[in-house]
């Protein structure tokens, strides 16, 4: 009885499908922290939660949609953004939040990301960047640091990763930020802002994947958090082309872009539905 009581008292229980908790995320995985920040931001932003939907793709972060007690859609790999685009355009009253991972949003779904940002579709996209494909066992992704070891780059990753805020900015996103799971207050505030901004908002959140990435790169969960503490520097308003993500040189965090421009629907109404 005490346990049941304790469950129902967690401040986020009202927004959680508590009958599905504990979730599938591993011990030390940062996705849960990003998810919690997202739920807190939803509560505090004042948006109508009955008119809020979460859309996820595939992968560990893609499981996010399954734990929120709101309308939630767990779609196919990489396709959360176009699905969410259809949803938002069909019912502009909805607040549509895309919660997914780096592999999903930027490798298989990369094309959809840049186009949704270009169109400035009113979506809040939260990308948990754990630097690898966690669900399938830690393989290299489009965000894996150069020379990092993964099961598909056993001698080190020969490729260069994307700089996600720069990509988002170059594609036309109207809100761009990067945080880590250690910066929970900044992150929550940032998600809150993104939820209330018009246009395409993007927040990258660095999160440890101890099972997939950490294990092979000698990085325990608390080591990752130490890196987030020691190697990061907050530069709000920094030029996205300068926001490095390099464990040796440093990691730039902050809100880089917050600039309103007409959304897809603004332009569509003005251009195409003028006589309707």
């Amino acid at each position: 009885m005490d346990k049941l009581k304790a469950r129902s008292d967690h401040p986020l229980d009202a927004l959680l499908r508590t009958d599905r908790i504990p979730h599938i995320w591993c011990s030390g995985c940062g996705i849960g922290t990003v998810f919690a920040s997202c739920l807190v931001a939803m509560q505090t932003s004042g948006i109508d939660l009955n008119k809020t939907a979460m859309v996820s793709g595939i992968g560990c972060s893609g499981r996010g949609a399954g734990y929120i007690k709101l309308d939630s859609y767990h779609t196919t790999h990489g396709r959360a953004i176009p699905f969410a685009t259809g949803m938002k355009l069909a019912n502009p009253e909805l607040n549509v939040v895309v919660f997914s991972g780096d592999g999903d949003l930027f490798a298989i779904g990369g094309n959809h990301f840049i186009h949704a940002a270009r169109r400035n579709v009113e979506l809040t996209v939260i990308c948990v960047n754990n630097l690898n494909y966690g669900m399938t066992g830690g393989q290299a992704a489009a965000t894996t640091p150069c020379m990092a070891k993964t099961p598909t780059t056993p001698l080190g990753n020969p490729e260069t990763p994307f700089n996600l805020p720069l990509l988002a900015y170059a594609s036309g996103a109207s809100y761009v930020a990067r945080w880590t799971i250690l910066h929970t207050r900044d992150l929550t505030k940032s998600i809150e802002e993104a939820l209330t901004r018009r246009g395409f908002s993007f927040i990258e959140v660095l999160a440890p994947c101890p099972t997939g990435y950490g294990r092979r790169n000698k990085e325990k969960p608390l080591d990752s958090l130490r890196l987030y503490q020691e190697r990061t520097v907050i530069k709000n308003g920094a030029d996205p082309s300068d926001v490095i993500l390099d464990y040796q040189q440093g990691i730039t965090l902050g809100k880089f872009i917050d600039h309103e421009r007409p959304t897809f629907l603004d332009s569509y109404d003005k251009t195409c539905r003028i006589n309707f």
Partner: peptide, 25 residues
């Protein structure tokens, strides 16, 4: 009062159509 959107490919088209239908259209 409807919306036509030219998506980036047919994968996205099908996804958007499903999303729109889930939103009741």
């Amino acid at each position: 009062g409807g919306i036509y959107i030219q998506m980036e490919d047919e994968i996205a088209s099908m996804a958007a159509v499903l999303g729109a239908s889930c939103a009741g259209v």
